[in-house]
Amino acid sequence: MKIKIHEGEIHLKKWEPSVNSGAAPIVMLHDSLGSVELWRDFPEILANELSRTVFAYDRLGFGKSDARDELPSKEFVEEESITFFPQIKEKLSLNKYVLFGHSVGGGMAINIASRDTDCLAVITVSAQAFVEDLTANGIREAKKMFEQPGQIERLEKWHGSKAKWVLHAWTDVWLSDEFKNWSLEPAISNVQCPVLAIHGDRDEYGSKAFPEFISTRTGSNAEMLIIKDCGHMPHKEKTNEVIRAAKEFLKNVA
């Protein structure tokens, strides 16, 4: 489905569980190269296992949402919580909700929760909390890989003609001098809802310093889960562990 916000049309998908508990829905926020379709079957599994409605949307410029002309600003993580998500929340008539954010989507989830008490809980997966050398080096390696013949076509499958924009929106911003001091620090202490920070011990884009930062600096109850033998995609690599952790974490969240 498409929803109209001031800046353009946003592609969004909804999954209803076979048995709905009536608990607050989950809104999923994708990573730097992600899209609704790249979540694969995980949202459906999440919906059915947790008995909650699940929404996922393509950020403007990504997937099946409208294109953007300019690259995101250096404040794009914060801007998702200020400019874009509030409009999506209004269009979906969300009163209470839970956020599930992967990678930079996790940082966006923290920022949204810091500004909106209607967010009842946050689950971050492989979220960056600041820019580590490991983060920058991983992005440089990915940038080199996408320069190889045929690689950009992998992104075109999900983002169409927007693929090069999506790649530059990631690499150009994250590797810029202006972004190197970015951090969740300004927002995280304002988060008042429970937070679960999930991280793979072999994440190629960040060390366990990220989930440690998130779990120790929120203004609320927070916990950390390090998944063994797992990289940057725990929800794909260790689906059952992530589902089990999410179910336990949200069991008392209405």
Score class of each variant (00 low, 15 high):
125 V>W: 00
126 S>P: 13
126 S>W: 00
127 A>P: 05
130 F>Q: 08
134 L>Y: 01
137 N>S: 15
138 G>F: 01
139 I>P: 04
140 R>V: 11
142 A>Q: 13
145 M>C: 14
147 E>Y: 03
153 E>N: 14
155 L>K: 08
160 G>V: 07
160 G>C: 06
164 K>W: 13
173 V>Q: 01
175 L>P: 01
177 D>A: 12
178 E>T: 11
181 N>C: 08
182 W>E: 07
182 W>N: 08
183 S>F: 04
183 S>V: 08
184 L>G: 09
185 E>T: 15
186 P>D: 03
187 A>Q: 15
196 L>I: 02
196 L>H: 00
197 A>E: 08
202 R>L: 15
205 Y>C: 06
205 Y>W: 11
207 S>C: 07
210 F>I: 09
210 F>L: 13
211 P>M: 03
217 R>L: 12
220 S>Y: 05
224 M>Y: 03
224 M>I: 11
225 L>W: 06
227 I>Y: 05
227 I>A: 06
228 K>A: 15
229 D>K: 14
230 C>L: 13
234 P>K: 00
234 P>N: 02
234 P>F: 00
236 K>H: 10
237 E>V: 11
242 V>F: 00
242 V>P: 01
242 V>K: 00
246 A>K: 01
247 K>I: 14
247 K>H: 10
248 E>V: 12
253 V>M: 09
254 A>H: 09
